[in-house]
Amino acid sequence: MGAVGRSLRGVRLPTRPRDWQLMGRTARLVLALPTYAVVAALASVASLTAFVVSLNVPVFLDLVVGGPLPLGSRLTVFGELYPFVGTNFTPAQGLLLVAVALLTGIDIAMATYHFREHGLDLQQGGAGAAGVVLGTLGAGCAACGSAVLLGLLSLVGVSTTLLFLPLDGLEFALGAVVVLTLSIYWLADGMRGGEINGCPVDI
């Protein structure tokens, strides 16, 4: 069973405690480098911002970027789009969105490090991109934006009854967490045996 758990058609999964330790250690070593810590922070903020703005593009363009409002009002409106500031997300949705944003930042920082140092393979890049897509879908659906999912599902002939999700679409944000976690694991696994900033990656 262990062999089955660790290998699904050759795909490695983080099934052992030391796999998670490897992920944590690799992420810590990468983020200990100031450049990559900044990359992670910027990517996290950018991904969260892109997400909340994408849900309310008209408000962003009409009130934050355009329109006659004074600067203070523009900033207030902009801030109200974010979870925990505005009321567009429940605390659970907000936590998940922040988690997806943080994981996205870590993933991009690690991918950037790996890309610059070692190159990157298809599996790792694909998982990161899938995480971004799932994260976007998740919050969109959670905001009753079922049209996104409906449009995508209709392309492959899936019944719209699948829209009646027990978690109101948070399933997709959870999916994004899983995909991003896998991406981080594969990146860490890819760096196994190497060194980051002089420190060995292996546990």
Binding site: A50, S54, V57, D62, V132, T136
Partner: peptide, 19 residues
């Protein structure tokens, strides 16, 4: 592709521009 696809999807949800 992931970023563009994701933003396009939410654009469909949230509108495609100013109003």
């Amino acid at each position: 592709a992931g970023v563009v696809g994701g933003l396009a999807g939410c654009g469909g949800s949230g509108g495609s521009g100013g109003t």
